[in-house]
Amino acid sequence: MSGDTGGLDLAGRRGVITGGGRGIGRAIALRLAERGGDLLLVGRDRGTLEATAEDLRAAGGTARALSVDLTDPAAPVRVVEAALEGGGLDLLVNNAGNVRAGRLDAIGADDVRAMVDLNLTAAILTTQAALPALRAADRGGVVLSISSGIGLVPLPFYSVYAATKTGLAGFGHALRRELAGTRVHVATAYPGATDTDMMTSSRAGESLGFGRRPVDDVVDDLLAALERGEHEINTSLPTRRRMQELHRDDPLAVDAALAPRLAEMEEAVRGHSSIAPLPGGAGPRSRA
């Protein structure tokens, strides 16, 4: 996937990165800090955010942390206001997300809502709140949303997660077309399985199409593609790319290929979850 429209300068961007304390979000933040970025890291875990902000400052960037529940209806406006108070906003990275794998009838309603609310709704509403500033940015704005390889090939036992990530992909396509002729660059990234905390509870590996790439390699490829001006950025390994091509051309052939190994896959991903309960049993939260 390319859609190259010319180079994009990421140096010195003033940006918001949701889920910026861990995993892909942290790695993106570090790379942007090395380019002199002025970044607001947003997430639930204040300690992780503050530690990452210190690392960003050491890497040459400017960084602040904002601890907020992105599923709170007031959060998107609060995030954008905090970014503007810090000096401006010309980059938004919608990275925060969570996952719980398993058969649909074994996933609780709270976990369904946790995935939909954070992975999709929060990203849409945060983008909506940020758009006026992104449109007005002197250098033009950038919206980068982190979907998933599962957004390209929805896999069994990830039905809700797949719905959120294909939804995020569709949001990116529609918004890119809606903003044609403006100076806002809309991009969506599709990482395959990546070696982050979010994947530690999964036992699925390369033989099941879940070969993991180091997070730094994924983010280096992602940002290089973004700097080339690409809109659709695929960082999956060849095994998953072959499945993506087959899904595009013959979806039922993917069904047939997966069917003999469904029991093995279900067992391997049974415990895959990044959703942890809130203190006091107040429902789920994301560790992403």
Rank of each mutant, 00 (worst) to 15 (best):
T5M: 11
G7R: 12
G7H: 13
A11F: 01
I24T: 02
A29Y: 07
A29T: 00
L30D: 01
R31K: 12
G36A: 01
D38N: 11
L40V: 14
L40Y: 08
L41C: 02
L41D: 04
R44A: 14
G47Y: 08
T48A: 09
L49N: 04
T52Y: 00
L56H: 04
G60A: 11
T62V: 02
L70D: 07
T71K: 12
A74Q: 12
A75Y: 01
P76L: 13
R78N: 06
V79P: 08
D90Q: 06
D90R: 05
L92H: 01
N98T: 08
V99F: 00
V99C: 00
V99Y: 00
R103T: 04
D105F: 10
D117G: 03
L118M: 10
L118G: 11
L120D: 06
L120R: 05
A123Y: 12
L125P: 04
T126S: 02
T127G: 05
A133Q: 09
L134G: 09
L134M: 15
A137K: 06
R139Q: 02
G141F: 12
Y158E: 12
Y158G: 03
Y158H: 08
V160P: 01
Y161D: 00
L168G: 01
R176V: 10
R177E: 13
R177C: 11
A189I: 04
P191F: 07
P191Q: 10
A193T: 04
T196W: 05
T196A: 10
S201D: 14
G205S: 09
S207N: 08
S207P: 06
R212G: 04
V218E: 10
V218H: 08
V219G: 01
L222P: 01
A224P: 10
L226I: 06
L226N: 10
L226F: 06
E227G: 09
R228L: 14
L237H: 15
P238R: 12
R240C: 15
M243T: 15
Q244A: 15
D249G: 11
A256N: 05
A268C: 07
G271C: 05
A282F: 02
R287S: 15
A288S: 14
